[in-house]
Simulated scan of single mutants.
Amino acid sequence: MSGLKPGDSFPDDVVFSYIPWTPESADITACGIPQNYPASKEWKDKKVVLFALPGAFTPSCSARHLPGYIEKLAEFKAKGVDIVAVLAYNDPFVMSAWQKANNVKNDDILFLSDPDTKFSKSIGWNMGERCARYALAIDHGKVIYAAKEPGRDVSVSGAEAVLAKL
């Protein structure tokens, strides 16, 4: 498959991995327990924005991609978005630490792991073993926005670009 496009159904077998945020594991040195996150099931009746990036703690991802979503979270919620999620190939422990390092609490943004880059590879939006940089907006199981970055910049997958399409 070569990506997803508006009008496509979100696949019905997508499972990511994550560590839910809890007050008990809020400290960056605390470890939670990884759990499966059945995205297809959880997102079936919701409006979701998923943005993917090559890796947690990397320069572009940390300085230019994630911050826009943190800053604009209220604007996404005002447009009816139920869930904002970030996806990378990193394991759930790294994604959880990245969430804590960015002071994102209460799963305001889900930090999801794409084990073995399975999902990203299934849609052809990977860079070797890493996720490519892309964004999807899904409304009740239907893709309403899908864009993969043509280069290294954060443009079509950034918070501003996705907000403009909702």
Rank of each mutant, 00 (worst) to 15 (best):
K47W: 10
Y145L: 04
A26F: 06
H65I: 00
L136H: 03
G3T: 08
W98K: 12
N106I: 06
K79F: 02
Y37C: 05
K72I: 10
Y134C: 03
P38W: 09
W21T: 03
A26T: 05
V154H: 02
R64N: 13
F111Y: 13
L163I: 04
V86D: 04
V143E: 04
V143I: 12
W43E: 01
H140E: 13
Y145G: 05
V49P: 02
F76M: 01
G7E: 12
I83T: 13
P59K: 03
W125T: 03
F10G: 08
E75F: 10
P34M: 11
D8S: 09
L50V: 14
T117S: 13
L166P: 04
E71I: 08
K44H: 14
D45Y: 12
D12Q: 15
K79M: 02
Y18D: 00
A56S: 08
K142E: 14
E160I: 05
I144S: 01
A88W: 04
V156R: 04
P23G: 11
F119T: 02
K44V: 10
S96W: 00
A63N: 15
D12F: 09
P11C: 14
V81T: 08
V104A: 12
S17W: 05
A74M: 10
Y89E: 15
G141C: 11
T117L: 06
L66W: 02
W21E: 00
M127E: 12
V14E: 06
S155D: 08
G80C: 10
W43D: 09
N36Y: 13
G55M: 11
F76Q: 01
K121Y: 08
P150G: 10
S2A: 10
F16S: 00
G151F: 07
G68E: 03
K105T: 15
S113K: 03
L136I: 05
A101G: 02
F93I: 04
V104L: 15
V14W: 08
R64V: 12
E71D: 14
K44Q: 15
V84P: 11
P59F: 06
P38E: 08
A63K: 15
L112M: 13
V15D: 00
A147Y: 01
A56K: 01
I19M: 11
D114Q: 05
S122R: 00
